[in-house]
Nucleic acid binder design. Structure first.
Lengths: 203, 203
DNA sequence: ATCAAATCTTGCAGAAGCCGAAAACATTCG
DNA sequence: CGAATGTTTTCGGCTTCTGCAAGATTTGAT
């Protein structure tokens, strides 16, 4: 049936989604500094106090979409065949998760500009990326038989993959390249897997 | 003479240092949530309003020491001989900058626990690390003849080096290993330079 | 040494964030 | 239905952060 998860849970999820969507949209439209919790709550039709039952800060609500995206990504990573080489699995999941259409690029760009304009939102976005790093490290540890608490390998693999994604996205969004996002991610992964060799300075 | 940099500048630097030291110390002693701007300002003998002339948030003051440390690190990187391979320069600077004595470890540990207990301070610390990443990327670009705005290479190298430092420090502080911090950093760099090969699962 | 300009500190006032407690409301399940 | 449980709201209070203007300090020129 449709209510395998009960009305209550569905309403909570809906409220949370409405709040984060409103926060993100209003921040992009008017700038982070001109959006109050009161306005976000009003847009989602709840009281300001309810906003703080879901998110402990404005920043958290604004980047909630990114967090959800990253969580979905690690879930997909868990679904990959266990015998697939870890880097292949990581690359496949990333390529599958990014949207390379021009509209998506425009959305990312608008969101990115909004985020960059406010240091505390930048910090929250980095926290979201670090959450992804940690979750990826856990999956990497599971799949490679390493220990996320005692080995450097899963930590570094998660961290490097996160940095690869960030580097590729930042460059793509900046408009300083003609290459597509998927192409950039592939290149970033190739660089990592090659051990980031120093380019020969032909000067 | 001693006043090659004017009384005014020296006083400002002293006030800034006193504020960040007080913020850090009080946060470790009483927990971030129990330290008010008022208390920090009182400990540094200035008014609360003056605190906000130096730092735009409590978190910023608490992690200011880390930011300064990271800035010193990139300055040292610039001082390395230009023909030294970039990874050698990075490793040398990191090993030179970390303090591996037991007292230092205890300090790092106390500070780390304080930071972890508060999400917004965690976010600020990650922002500091990202600042280091960006600065390292700039130096890497200078030294390798690449473009920090158009090439993935410096972005990834800076990001990976930052993650290597973070992974090594986190593991060291966690107490889950007997190895020293310098040893861990060396190992992290070796893993990166080898392209993070998947460990063979001998299970 | 004195004065004027530049800079820094401070107090004040106000907008907004954040959180605890308790009342009001909604849903679940017996 | 009705009790138990979970969610939203109202309210009060404290803290953060910022703009502004007045007062204090430093600087550099005369």
């Amino acid at each position: 049936m449709s209510d395998s998860v009960g009305l209550r849970e569905r309403k909570k999820a809906a409220t949370r989604a409405a709040l984060s969507a409103a926060a993100n949209r209003l921040a992009i439209e008017h700038g982070v500094d001109h959006v109050t919790v009161e306005a976000i709550a009003a847009a989602a039709d709840v009281s300001p106090r309810t906003f703080h039952n879901y998110f402990s800060s404005r920043e958290e609500a604004i980047v909630a979409g990114v967090v959800d995206w990253a969580n979905a990504l690690t879930d997909k990573l868990r679904d990959r065949p266990a015998d697939e080489p870890i880097w292949d699995a990581l690359l496949a999941v990333l390529l599958d998760s990014v949207d390379d259409r021009p509209e998506a690029k425009a959305r990312w760009k608008a969101q990115s500009e909004m985020i960059m304009a406010n240091p505390s939102v930048v910090a929250s976005q980095l926290a979201a990326l670090d959450g992804m790093r940690r979750r990826v490290a856990e999956v990497v540890a599971e799949r490679t038989g390493t220990d996320p608490d005692r080995d450097l390998y899963p930590r570094l693999t998660g961290g490097s993959a996160a940095q690869a994604l960030k580097a590729a996205l930042d460059l793509w969004i900046s408009g300083k390249t003609d290459r597509g996002i998927k192409e950039l991610i592939v290149e970033a992964f190739e660089l990592l897997r090659a051990g980031l060799p120093e380019p020969s300075q032909s000067r």
